[in-house]
Computed example of a mutant assay.
Amino acid sequence: MRPGAIPSPGFSTFSLGPLTIHMYGIVILLGVIVAVVIAHRRYRDRGGDPNLVLDAAIVAVPAGIIGGRIYHVVTSYENYIGPGRHLGDALKIWNGGLGIWGAVALGALGAYLVVRRKARFGPFADALAPGLACAQAIGRLGNWFNQELFGAPTELAWGLRVDPAHLPAGYAPGTLFHPTFLYELLWNLALAAVLIGLERRRRLASGQVWWLYVAGYCLGRVWIEALRIDTANHILGLRLNMWTCLIIFALAAVAASRAGRANHPARIGADERAGEQREQGQTAQN
């Protein structure tokens, strides 16, 4: 093995009694926990009721998983529909395949439906953004365990070594590939740090951290997507996910600018906090 080359794990599952545990699921769960813990603290520091984070997570997490799987299946339909394909495989989430945009969109919608009745969604989304970036970073380890979604061959010292069973057709054993899982992991961690740094150095309005997170993720995903060699649908020569990122980046940049002009406060005021607590008290009585 070339010195510095990144080895792939020799397993993606392990047994626990009669159960088969998939590492993909483990890292997704770990990412969710990290996101909730970070959002819980950040929302509390903004003056919000941190219990609202847990209430929203109960709805947002399953909604995000469903949305991510739907996006993946729709944009990679040829893997599930057609000769020799089985539509039932679309339910096998443990084999990998969560489209981030479906996960973020449906997960955010689920959180919004919970939060909107009790508090402003902008400060809540801002509190969530860095934790969500960290969760995505952790989630990319699932691709490493599954030996999937890596990039083109590379001569770089940190190339990824893939087991022969996972080699794409036409590549010789020992070929090293761009570890795109690692690139995205590092990009997302850096994005989380940048967002927190911007908050500390600049007076950002409600919603701006969230939209900067969306734009920042898109910016990184475009160049990472360009490295990948897994099968994907193309439009005008570009992978579908690249078009998605470019479009969402433009929309997020406009939304961040508009949020700045609106200049709604990023913190929860005392009157809002009292109303939030009254709403939760009434819900508990019901």
Results as ranks from 00 to 15, higher is better:
P3A: 14
G4Q: 04
A5L: 12
I6D: 10
S8V: 10
P9S: 11
S15K: 12
S15T: 14
P18H: 09
L19H: 12
T20V: 14
I21A: 05
L29P: 01
G31S: 02
G31E: 00
I33Q: 02
V36P: 00
V36R: 00
V37P: 00
V37K: 11
A39W: 00
R42Y: 04
G48D: 03
P50I: 12
L52E: 13
V53N: 03
L54Y: 12
A57T: 03
V59R: 00
V61Q: 06
G64T: 06
G67N: 03
G68Y: 00
N79W: 13
R85L: 06
G88K: 08
I93R: 03
W94Q: 14
G96K: 09
G97D: 10
G97A: 12
L98K: 05
G99I: 05
G99L: 03
W101T: 01
A105R: 00
A105L: 08
K118Q: 13
G122R: 15
A127Y: 04
P130H: 02
A133W: 01
A135P: 01
I138C: 02
R140S: 04
W144G: 07
F145S: 07
L149M: 14
P153F: 07
H166M: 14
L167I: 12
A169G: 14
A169P: 08
Y171T: 10
G174V: 11
H178S: 03
L182Y: 03
E184L: 02
L189V: 04
E199I: 08
R202W: 15
R203D: 15
L204G: 05
S206K: 10
W210D: 05
W210L: 13
V214F: 01
L219Q: 00
L219P: 01
I224E: 01
I224A: 04
L227C: 02
D230Q: 12
I235P: 04
G237I: 09
G237M: 11
G237F: 10
L240R: 02
N241C: 03
T244A: 10
T244E: 13
A253H: 11
A253L: 15
R258C: 11
R261W: 13
A262R: 15
A262G: 06
P265L: 07
A274Q: 14
Q277D: 15
R278K: 14
Q280F: 08
Q280W: 08
T283N: 13
